[in-house]
Simulated scan of single mutants.
Amino acid sequence: MGIKILSDSACDLPKELIQEYSIDILPIVVIKDDKEYLDNITIESKKVYDDMRNGEVYKTAQIPPSVFQERFTEYAQNGDNVIYIAFSSGLSGTYQTSLFVRDEILEKYPKFQLDIIDSKSATVGFGLIVLEAAKMAKEGRTKEEIIKAIEFYVENIEHIFTVDDIEYLFRGGRVSRTQAFFGGLLNIKPVLHVDDGKLVPLEKVRGKNKVFKTMLDIMEKRTSEVELKDQIVGISHGDNIEGAMKLKELISEKFGVETFIINTIGASIGAHSGPGTLAIFFLRERYKDN
């Protein structure tokens, strides 16, 4: 019996890849004016970004326990062998909720085979982990082989990103009101990364043009052209396809990268990062499957 890969909407994989590799996706809850929506099902990211540009505020909530209970029960009754790769525990409580529900389900279905892994990642960086697992599952690889690859990706995936308006990070609790005020006043663009699943500021850059150079300089310090060769590099954006394509062009020129996954940041993360966000994802070193 093959391995089923389950994840959630914060992985921001394009729909065609989700369908091609039969990835099961649970939607994160997006909230506006006390009304709940399901990320990428009952609300699209474009709507969220347009509303945020007009001053509307969105919040998010983790996947409810009842959703996990329903899906895990369905898998257990079918005798499926499942790996759930979760949105970073440093950014959401979804991972912990899934562990709690798994314990409940195992009491009723003790033979149910379910592994849960904290991706410690977000958006397309998270998606690259999920995609690799799904590719291996489609190839008929064993659960042990797939988990080994996932663990390597979790430890080696890099996130480098910037936001267009630091105010959105303030609303999401990532910077102080003073930092947000002066950042906006001075046209400062923060460059951040993800460390052990949590957002960590790296540099503050004045002006958009310098942001691209800074992001590529950090990329160069953390990997090499040799390691990037034949790798899939991820780029995600907050309704900013022009910026994403510019990054693709610069990365191709500098490192010779040929394969990219480019996608819009979904509502579950975009509600906090805001329109204009740009992010790059890559492995420090390629996974050697041996």
Rank of each mutant, 00 (worst) to 15 (best):
N156H: 14
R222H: 12
T123F: 00
V130K: 08
R286D: 14
I150M: 08
M52L: 09
T142S: 15
L6V: 13
V154A: 05
S252Y: 03
V29Y: 02
D239N: 10
R171S: 06
L283E: 09
V163Q: 03
G184I: 11
K254E: 15
R141F: 10
A267S: 15
S45H: 04
E220T: 09
E203F: 08
F281K: 05
P27I: 03
D34V: 03
I129V: 14
D115W: 02
R171V: 08
H237N: 06
K108E: 14
D39V: 00
L202K: 09
E20A: 13
E74S: 11
A134L: 13
N209H: 08
A279C: 12
I232M: 15
T94V: 11
P14G: 09
V257S: 08
E227N: 12
Q77V: 15
S268N: 01
P27E: 06
Q231F: 07
A267V: 03
Y84C: 11
V57F: 13
G243V: 04
R171L: 09
I265E: 01
L283R: 03
E227A: 11
E158L: 02
T94C: 01
E258H: 06
Y21T: 11
R286E: 15
Y84I: 07
D230I: 15
I28P: 00
D80E: 15
S252D: 00
L199C: 09
V101C: 02
D34Q: 07
L202R: 05
Y153W: 14
P190Q: 08
I269D: 14
G127P: 12
Q113S: 15
F182D: 02
S273E: 03
K148V: 13
F152V: 13
R53G: 14
Y49R: 04
T142P: 04
I85F: 11
E258Y: 02
P275M: 08
D230E: 15
P65S: 13
L128Y: 04
V205N: 07
L131V: 11
N263I: 09
K4H: 10
K135Q: 13
K198W: 00
Y75G: 03
S88C: 06
I129L: 08
M245R: 14
P27K: 04
E20I: 07
G234D: 10
P190N: 11
K148M: 09
I261V: 15
G93K: 01
F72M: 12
P65N: 14
I41T: 06
V67E: 11
T60S: 08
A133D: 11
Y95R: 02
